[in-house]
Design a protein around this nucleic acid. Structure first.
Lengths: 342, 342
DNA sequence: CTGTTAGCGCATTCAC
DNA sequence: GTGAATGCGCTAACAG
């Protein structure tokens, strides 16, 4: 391995000078700098980041902890993070926690041990390891999932509002028995979306029926069996709000198996965009999140935190957008025809 | 920061002993070991991986370089890698190269600088940085994309066979003017799939028409415009083979815009499974790859390479599987009815 | 079985 | 503006 000492020897300077040249620190005689760079190139010198990290007690890596690498929501978000990171000369390493607190803890431990300079995390919950990470000196930004009562930079969407919008839309379309399938109790996104659903129901003078609500996991199979469960229950729904894109897919699977047509037999709205939502007949109505922007915002928050470790924490909430497609539109077409607009 | 020296002081032993205890090396007096572990826990000692890495000149991280984090093919593959890595006590860091050689080079440079202990890569091409990585001491496994003429552990599927199978299936279904849209020239998967398509055509006595072949990129928009291009061309196709799942989506978008029905107006087969292929009407016929197994296999290859740096390189080819759905099935139903099976 | 010592490669003092 | 010296935290020789 070629070290700065080798370069220094060949270039006839001191290791310190090589270091200075290669890091653009301080002023170095131009000719000397040139020479050093030449020699470094000639010897194919490669800085040893591990040694640099040890000396500097920090790295130039950001860790991004996401709970499901197969969910397009997260992958799009990562793009946003990457673009900011790259511009700021950081490498992004991705860690897939799979919604598994043990995996999450293992990664957090590795991240701290490797002294990564910042973390963007979609936490599986307020676990010990997340708390310790927060209490450590590693700058951290929480994304997608609010952690109640903790002072930490956070980027969110307004889940309550978005879920309410979904529900109100279904009500406006004439659906009267609206089911809701959400994620695990305790995960903020899951709970908040239920809250929005509930509020919208009561605001519209409709009854909230616990029989029409299911806490699944954020997985396909979970959404599917929850839907089956509801269909087998005492109150047949005429519409369903799926609180996450993966759940929405599970719901669709179930409906397809049950031979139910959307939206004729049952209406549906999903939360989170689905990349192929527009390719399907019927197209799937969703509450779209600005995923790329969420990523960019989180990355910028991390960047500013690194620059000013003691600035106040900030919580950014980005807007969702209702994307109306066919899965939720059951307008009384006949009525529309007999009463033409002016 | 708590170091082994602090632990050693409090426990009344030498730093070396602390290191030995914490690493399970050599035999240490049981009582002493107990004491050391107690003190370490009490002081909340956290090993500094950077220092360890420097000393050991290696880390316990594997890097996985994929070209498109938004492609479900890669994300599923990553799962397979992770499961093996975790069992072997390695952390997996994911790097998204976005099919961009510069990003790829930057990540490779970081990986070498950080002395990661192994790399699994789906290379964007035979670039300098990939070559240098291969020539370096960092163990490396190539996945998904063959690098011709290079001795390197590789995990592939049989693209020629799979593409042939797709094409033969379309021929068997009565399609006679089969287009093909593939990825960039020079990317092995793109080229090999064209080769399989071509062979299958000529094997069936059908003419290969360059006008029905397009090299797009592995992106949605690319597939879409390539399809538009073909439709506008002199030979109207009655079927299309999309050499990648993302291209397949682009093709579907184009067909949807053009108001063409699948498979009545045009048949279609994709390469790579599409997570929602079965949810769509018509379901999309695909050449499915064993993505999870590809990941597992690559990870095991890396593991064995780490254990035996000088063993011969091995190239593993996994089988694809034709998943027949509706997008490609245009059987003459009437004929089937008048000639009932015995 | 345990402690002392040295050095991984680098960036940063502190002299000059 | 440059060089010599030091130590980041750890592990692996080596010595005892």
């Amino acid at each position: 391995m070629v070290t700065i000492y080798d370069v220094a020897d060949v270039a006839g300077v001191s290791p310190a000078t090589v270091s200075r040249v290669l890091n653009g620190r301080a002023n170095v005689n131009a000719a000397m700098a040139e020479k050093v760079r030449d020699v470094a190139a000639k010897l194919d010198y490669r800085p040893n980041a591990v040694a640099r990290n040890l000396r500097r007690a920090s790295t130039n890596m950001w860790a991004v902890l996401i709970s499901d690498i197969e969910n397009p929501f997260f992958t799009s978000l990562v793009r946003g993070i990457e673009d900011v990171a790259q511009a700021a000369k950081y490498s992004v390493v991705l860690c897939n926690t799979d919604e598994n607190p043990d995996k999450e803890a293992a990664y957090i431990s590795a991240i701290r041990a490797e002294q990564m300079s910042g973390v963007i995390i979609s936490p599986s919950g307020w676990s010990d390891s997340v708390r310790e990470l927060h209490e450590s000196t590693t700058p951290m930004v929480v994304i997608d999932r609010r952690i109640a009562g903790i002072e930490v930079d956070t980027v969110l969407v307004d889940n309550v509002y978005g879920a309410g919008e979904a529900t109100r839309h279904l009500v406006a379309q004439g659906f009267r028995s609206i089911a809701c399938i959400t994620g695990p109790r305790g995960i903020a996104t899951a709970d908040e979306r239920v809250e929005g659903y509930r509020q919208a129901l009561t605001d519209n003078g409709m009854e909230f029926r616990p029989e029409l609500l299911r806490y699944a996991d954020f997985r396909r199979a979970g959404g599917r069996s929850a839907m089956r469960d509801i269909l087998a229950g005492p109150y047949p729904p005429d519409a369903v709000f799926a609180a996450n894109n993966v759940i929405a897919v599970g719901v669709l699977e179930c409906l397809s198996e049950a031979g139910m047509r959307v939206p004729d037999d049952i209406g549906m709205v999903g939360f989170d965009e689905i990349p192929w939502a527009h390719l399907v007949r019927p197209g799937i109505t969703t509450i779209a999140q600005p995923t790329y922007e969420l990523g960019r915002t989180a990355a910028r928050l991390l960047q500013s935190r690194l620059a000013a470790p003691h600035r106040e924490t900030s919580i950014v909430t980005l807007p969702t957008e209702l994307q109306v497609r066919e899965s939720s539109t059951r307008v009384p077409r006949v009525a529309a025809e007999v009463i033409p607009s002016p």
